[in-house]
């Protein structure tokens, strides 16, 4: 079965694989085509079709003019919100996770196994168990309905993943290396900067990609803790769909969906290898 001398069977294999691949591509092709069709055209025919007249203006309207919940500034402010939440939360949680992963795997300290064990429980505790407590914390620190509040949540929650990823990578670094450096008088930070960090780029890329896609795509916290102009783009997309239920503008909506999906799709296109590595690393918890 694993050799190449199985001609009729092989044609069948290519046929099946191509058919399934085509089915997987249908949604994105449909949305891309729709984002370039006028709403009248879509209403007359169906969601699935080739543009008769290329409506490039859909993207401009979706970006800057479209009305979501009484504000007509397009999807731009919400994209900006998502970026302002995702970028800081990704960077901070990755850096803290790298240090924490280094501390529990190489530096070692009393109680490290315990605390690490509890931190990794964060991979399993459903968001629903944290919704009410976060509401109270956000209210008490005055960050309800702010982007900083979301940054805080995603940073603290992301630590479970970033610490796990980095820790699992760092345990492969020989302990002797660290011991020798300590004998030479190197401290916690120096060992991190000089030994651990230079070895880290592969895992840091995986961690950054994982955090970026997850925070960008997150919806529940965004919709619960922010309203109106403060919402991230996932929550705004739902609001948009609800807002235009009476007079649907599928062309513009498709363009908005494409814009909202673009950052993570680009990350996938340019960092696919690391993206998959993150998926499988997250799977083997």
């Amino acid at each position: 079965m694993r050799d190449t001398s199985f001609a009729p069977g092989r044609i069948l294999i290519y046929l099946i694989v191509s058919l399934i691949a085509a089915a997987y591509l249908v949604p994105i092709i449909v949305v891309v085509l729709n984002s370039l069709r006028t709403s009248e055209e879509i209403a007359q025919t169906s969601m699935i079709g080739w543009p008769q007249r290329w409506a490039w203006s859909n993207y401009g309207i979706a970006w800057a003019d479209f009305c979501v919940a009484q504000t007509c500034a397009g999807i731009r402010p919400y994209m900006l919100n998502s970026a302002l939440v995702t970028i800081p939360a990704t960077i901070i949680s990755t850096l803290l996770g790298a240090v924490a992963g280094y501390a529990v795997s190489l530096w070692r300290f009393p109680g490290d196994r315990w605390i690490y064990g509890i931190v990794t429980l964060g991979l399993f505790l459903p968001q629903q168990m944290r919704l009410l407590p976060w509401t109270i914390v956000l209210r008490d620190v005055g960050l309800i309905n702010t982007l900083s509040g979301l940054v805080m949540i995603h940073t603290i929650q992301g630590l479970s993943f970033t610490t796990l990823f980095c820790r699992n990578y760092y345990v492969a670094i020989p302990q002797e290396l660290i011991r020798a450096a300590r004998v030479d008088g190197a401290g916690f930070y120096r060992i991190f900067w000089r030994i651990v960090l230079p070895l880290s780029p592969p895992i840091l890329i995986v961690t950054v990609i994982w955090q970026f896609t997850h925070i960008w795509n997150e919806f529940l916290y965004g919709v619960t803790f922010t309203t109106g102009q403060q919402q991230p783009v996932t929550a705004a997309l739902i609001a948009l769909t609800a807002a235009v239920a009476d007079i649907p503008q599928y062309g513009v909506q498709s363009a908005a969906v494409m814009i909202a999906a673009l950052p993570t799709l680009l990350v996938y296109v340019f960092g696919g290898r690391y993206f998959v590595r993150g998926l499988t690393a997250g799977a083997v918890k």
């Binding site: 997987y24 169906s46 969601m47 795509n217 919806f219 769909t241 999906a261």
Partner: peptide
Amino acid sequence: SIFLYPMAVSFVVTGTVWSWLLNPGLG
């Protein structure tokens, strides 16, 4: 890459797009 790209997209986007495709009056 084709079989994995949906993983990069948010559930909100997935849900919205499939709601169009599966809408009998539209998809």
